Amino acid sequence: MSLVQRGLDRVPQRYRAVVLQHQELLKFAVVGAITWFVDTGTVYALKLTVLQDKPLTARALGVLIATIVSYVLNREWSFRARGGRQRHHEAALFFAVSALAIVVTVVPQAVSLYVFDIRVPHVSAPTQAVANFVSGQILGVLLAMGFRFWALRRFVFPEDLREAELETL
């Protein structure tokens, strides 16, 4: 029995239909949680070592690595039943959407650092760290996640194109 089936078996019967109706969203959220940990781990590993004075560079690299992991997991699990495009075309669209999502992710932290000036020497290092976490890891990631879900379903992994072509014949 698969992990998903075991989880579904634990859902009360009256909620099971809702879970099944939104299974893509739930799978996307699980992928998002996994890639959030990949992103966060990468960002803090870089900020605590080689990029101590470059929090936005660490953020961009964390998002880039998490995006690669996200493509594989979303293609093979979340949106497995969708698609129909050639893989290289689909991958190009995915990374274009993700590039826009990187901008969405970075904007709240950039505003925090450079518009509100919440950075050393204007504030203490712990204050900057908390502001970076809230603006980047929470607000930026949530905004980008909403954008990605909408754009992936709309442009990258639309309803199966093969089925749509067969219906028009």
Rank of each mutant, 00 (worst) to 15 (best):
V19C: 00
V38S: 09
G83N: 02
V11D: 03
T35N: 15
Q23K: 03
F37T: 14
A101Y: 04
F37Q: 12
V107G: 09
V120Q: 14
A17M: 02
Q21C: 02
A110G: 05
H122T: 11
V30M: 11
F94C: 01
G41R: 06
V31N: 08
T35D: 15
T127I: 12
V19T: 00
R148I: 07
R87K: 07
F28L: 09
R119W: 12
A60I: 12
T67E: 12
E163I: 13
V134S: 08
D160K: 09
P158W: 09
I34D: 13
H88C: 10
A110P: 01
Q52W: 09
T40Y: 13
Q21T: 12
F116Q: 08
L152S: 04
Q21P: 00
M145H: 08
R80W: 08
R154T: 07
T168E: 14
F155W: 15
P158T: 14
T40Q: 13
A144Y: 06
R153Y: 00
V97N: 04
I138V: 15
W150E: 09
A92I: 02
N132F: 10
L64H: 12
Q86S: 11
V103H: 05
R148Q: 10
T105L: 07
V107L: 12
Q137A: 15
Y114I: 10
A144P: 01
A45L: 15
D117N: 15
K27N: 05
A58H: 02
Y114L: 06
A66C: 09
S70T: 02
L61C: 11
N74K: 11
L142H: 08
P55W: 05
E163Q: 15
A66K: 05
V31T: 11
G83D: 03
R6S: 13
R10A: 11
F95L: 06
L64T: 15
G146H: 04
A92F: 01
G136E: 14
A99H: 04
S78P: 06
F28I: 01
V69F: 08
G7E: 00
T57Q: 10
V50T: 10
F149C: 02
Q128V: 04
F157V: 06
R6Y: 08
V18Y: 00
G84D: 00
A92G: 00
Q52T: 11
G136D: 14
G83W: 01
Q23D: 11
R14F: 02
S98K: 03
L113K: 04
V104C: 14
